[in-house]
């Protein structure tokens, strides 16, 4: 057996073991920490499979932001003492569906897939050839970026919509509350965070910039920036009241809005949505990436904060930090 294959085998066994452990864990905090570890190891698996873009995104979004969301959410869940329905009996169908699905369907589908998937291993190549053939006119030197922002830009446009929609949903559900109790944070941590902040911004800029030629891009960079914003909130910055209205909403919506405007303009101009004029393709993709990064950073940070800014309602509420004060 080759050493590389052994490495893969060990990595996958650890991943499956982690998944099993975190899903079976009785301690939720432990489960969330294991989930973050799972995400980081998953990023390693993506590197092994030749997908560094996905690895970056997994580490930043899958492990980082999702982990932050889960930790903040866990902290906000109160005690279950008040709950009168914890032992509500399952209905007949619920009791039936779990064993049927788990016992019959999952093994049979898994078995078919496991048996057949290995047949696929040697067959059809992907679309590398086709993509490379068009890469020159796509406005981006990196295959994944070209697919995301040109060949399959329609998906990315709609997915930016999903992101904005998720934030609107969160705002419709709850009002922002403080992320942390300020007194819980030690001065040393504050100092460290202040040191880290500029570093995060520089790294995020680098990741965005190199996305044109190499792994990286708006999502990864936006996720890093949002981590920076969360750090800033941690050390006590907050968005001034007068910027929590339209300016904040503009920042959140500009990524999707500009993309949508470009789609409309190209549709009007050429009859095809998102058909960039060839000499403008590079600049348009850069523009989309820049505004998307700003929006994604703000959206992800606002999602972790988890609610609409207090001035949205007429009732004056406790002052809650919204997104960062740096913009």
């Amino acid at each position: 057996m080759e050493p590389a294959l052994i490495f893969d085998l060990v990595l996958l066994l650890i991943l499956i073991g982690l998944a099993w452990l975190l899903l079976a864990s009785t301690d939720l905090f432990r489960a969330v920490v294991l989930f973050i570890a799972f995400g980081l190891l998953l990023a390693l698996a993506w590197v092994r499979l030749g997908a560094p873009d996905v690895a970056l995104a997994e580490a930043a979004i899958g492990a980082g932001i999702t982990g932050a969301l889960l930790l903040v959410g866990l902290g906000r869940l109160g005690s279950t003492e008040r709950c009168r329905f914890s032992r509500a009996p399952l209905t007949f169908l619920q009791r039936l569906s779990a064993p049927v699905l788990v016992g019959v369907m999952i093994p049979s589908i898994s078995l078919i897939l496991l048996l057949e998937v290995h047949q696929l291993a040697g067959t059809t190549p992907g679309r590398q050839g086709l993509i490379n053939a068009f890469l020159d006119v796509s406005g981006s030197g990196h295959g994944v970026t070209a697919v995301l922002l040109n060949f399959r830009a329609w998906d990315t446009l709609l997915e930016k919509g999903v992101l904005l929609l998720a934030l609107i949903t969160i705002w419709s559900l709850d009002q922002a509350r403080p992320l942390f109790h300020q007194e819980d944070i030690s001065p040393q941590l504050m100092g460290l965070a202040r040191l880290l902040l500029p570093l995060v911004i520089v790294v995020a800029g680098f990741v965005l910039w190199q996305g044109d030629q190499a792994p990286g891009g708006a999502f990864q960079s936006g996720a890093l920036l949002s981590a920076g914003i969360l750090l800033a909130i941690l050390v006590g910055y907050s968005l001034p009241q007068r910027w929590q209205g339209l300016s904040l909403r503009l920042l959140l919506a500009i990524g999707f809005g500009v993309f949508l405007l470009i789609a409309a303009a190209t549709l009007l101009y050429s009859g095809y949505p998102l058909q960039y004029p060839e000499h403008l393709a590079g600049s348009l993709i850069l523009l989309i990436e820049l505004v998307a990064t700003a929006s994604i950073a703000a959206l992800l940070a606002a999602a972790v904060v988890g609610g609409h800014p207090p001035d949205d309602l007429s009732t004056p509420a406790a002052k809650a930090p919204s997104t960062s004060g740096r913009r």
């Binding site: 995104a57 993509i131 994944v144 697919v147 999502f219």
Partner: peptide, 25 residues
């Protein structure tokens, strides 16, 4: 590697993040 599945997974990761965020709230 084929960039198309990678692009799809990048999209998928963001979509599942959105669902996670909404579900937690």
């Amino acid at each position: 590697a084929d960039p198309v599945p990678q692009a799809m997974v990048l999209t998928g990761i963001v979509v599942s993040l959105c669902f996670t965020a909404v579900a937690i709230v």
